[in-house]
């Protein structure tokens, strides 16, 4: 049996739920695990247009981490999400280990933060001036720095790319550094039609992510794994859970149908009536 975790089995993936307000018409945020778009210390204007292109069963995207910066996030977006009853996991990304640590320190004091998700898999780290996670020990260093600043009783998720050649090693490294769970995974490195670096998301990457989850669960049974990549309905969600994931994240599917996360949650709850809030609490 996979490790118990203090959050639900369905989560909104980073960067795919807006600020929460835009999702609210289509999903009850009460008790919903909501991962924010990745937040940086200073505001980021994001990349140029076009930012998103369609490929068969996938979306290629290069948003460039547009976000208002930590201060503005704390003042406006976080309080709104907390009031709406969401369990807020703040995704953080930075240009250096110190920036991740600073984000974790300030977020540890902010009321209503359920946990953090450390973004380690961004697909154009060099181009965006982000800390480059080339080796598992880079990822581990970031997680260790974040863990030092963030209370031990609240979860820190470490999000990695679904890269089979690195998944087990990476998961072991972040687990040893104190991550509560590893998220597999992020978008797959890709290019927009004009050649700019981007990430590929959606059902096109499900088999790739699923393989990574299987592999890590088999090799590292002590590590809690959150699965993601093209989760677009109860069937895909179940495939990740059957592979041993403790939870799934829903991203690009929300762009196609904003009710997806509510539908999956309702389906899993119907299957397990004790699972009212979508929590595992095992």
């Amino acid at each position: 049996m996979s490790p118990a975790v203090p959050w639900g089995r369905v989560m909104v993936a980073s960067g795919c739920g807006g600020t929460g307000r835009e999702l609210a018409p289509y999903a009850d945020l009460e008790g919903l695990d909501f991962v924010t778009r990745s937040i940086t210390l200073d505001p980021r204007a994001g990349g140029p247009s076009p930012r998103v292109a369609e490929t068969p069963s996938g979306l290629v995207h290069a948003v460039g981490h547009q976000n208002p910066g930590l201060e503005h996030f704390l003042a406006t977006e976080l309080p709104w999400l907390v009031r709406a009853g969401a369990r807020v996991h703040v995704s953080i990304v930075g240009g250096a280990i110190g920036e991740y640590a600073e984000l974790a320190r300030r977020l540890s004091r902010a009321p209503g933060v359920a946990g953090l998700e450390v973004n380690l898999g961004a697909t154009d780290q060099a181009g965006e001036g982000l800390f480059e996670v080339r080796e598992p020990y880079h990822a581990a260093s970031v997680v260790a720095a974040v863990r030092r600043e963030f209370p031990a009783d609240r979860p820190v998720l470490a999000k990695l790319r679904p890269d089979l050649s690195r998944a087990v090693e990476g998961a072991r490294a972040v687990h040893d550094a104190g991550a509560s769970a590893v998220v597999l995974g992020d978008a797959v490195p890709a290019a927009l039609p004009d050649g700019r670096p981007a990430g590929l998301s959606g059902p096109a990457i499900t088999p790739v992510a699923l393989r990574c989850v299987h592999e890590v669960v088999a090799r590292l049974p002590e590590v809690a794994v959150v699965g993601g990549g093209g989760v677009d309905g109860p069937a895909t969600a179940r495939a990740f859970l059957a592979a041993g994931a403790v939870a799934v994240q829903v991203g690009a599917a929300l762009l196609h149908d904003p009710t997806t996360v509510a539908r999956i949650r309702a389906d899993l709850e119907a299957q397990d009536p004790h699972d009212h809030s979508g929590r595992t609490d095992r």
Binding site: G15, G18, R21, E22, G46, Q66, L255
Partner: peptide
């Protein structure tokens, strides 16, 4: 008619540069 991926405000895929009252351009 800016290209849009979601149309619902979730993805930030439809940036429009606007000049605010303070003269600063924002997306």
């Amino acid at each position: 008619e800016t290209p849009m991926a979601c149309g619902t405000g979730l993805c930030q895929g439809c940036p429009v540069p606007v000049v605010a009252e303070d003269g600063v351009t924002r997306r």
